[in-house]
Design a protein around this nucleic acid. Sequence first.
DNA 1: TTTCCTGCAAACTCTTTGCATATGG
DNA 2: CCATATGCAAAGAGTTTGCAGGAAA
Lengths: 141, 141
Amino acid sequence: MAQASAAACETVGTRNTKQRALVLDAVRSLHNHPTSAEIYEVVHQQNPNVSRATVYRNLGVLSDRGEVLRIPVPNAADRYDFRCDNHFHAKCERCGGVFDIETEGVDPFARITKDYGFQVTGFDLAFSGICSQCANGEADC
Amino acid sequence: MAQASAAACETVGTRNTKQRALVLDAVRSLHNHPTSAEIYEVVHQQNPNVSRATVYRNLGVLSDRGEVLRIPVPNAADRYDFRCDNHFHAKCERCGGVFDIETEGVDPFARITKDYGFQVTGFDLAFSGICSQCANGEADC
DNA sequence: TTTCCTGCAAACTCTTTGCATATGG
DNA sequence: CCATATGCAAAGAGTTTGCAGGAAA
């Protein structure tokens, strides 16, 4: 349910560089929904020559490929997840921490407080897709 | 269901200036989920002396007061809504347009395509609230 | 040997902030 | 009066991009 990406045709002809492998390893080693800054720190420790721009570019490629999951956090830096399966995220208003919310079973909303001790006071939700006018090939909508 | 705000105690002692009224009028006149830039354009047409900073500050005050609804859009500028009741928003991947999705009745997710012609391919969702550790008064989580 | 990728730095978007001045209640 | 608001400009966070050189395939 999180961010569906067209992982197929956009990634033909992409290469596997050392830098890209470092970024992927960093995301896989960090299980706390790291920001690009945190990923950069890890990558930079392995190889101080890797630039921020390369980390950003590779996070884009890897999330297009479906090898990492991009989590756009409202009013905050994007976060990345080594888990690519469908799950919700919950952000604490106080500490800013981002938590996984499993979506197995029914009624995940009502179960959040019970199962995670997370008191939901609100959420930000935006669907992505194609609107009817665009689907019909009309110019602008 | 959208962005719960503590509209009460944060807004004591706020004033009603001409600029603030202009911002509120602009949001109420724009029914297309305007960005701050679009709101600024309208305000600026009424009074070219009003600065961007004032528009931003007043959008913050007005959404704290509950007079406008702030819609944080992932990877895009925040949008504002004259409607303050609970409803979802859907953003078209092609044209970037933001649409209202009513939440009355059950199973709004499954009804989106049928009722709005909007083909949902994914969505970005982040709950807000208080995590159990913060609720228990622990230092960091 | 061509196409993709990299590093660097600069640019870019959106938003916030410091400061001196103005103004609403 | 004086706390709140304002305008200006500058800073800030997060991210993207132009370019020349470098390295996968």
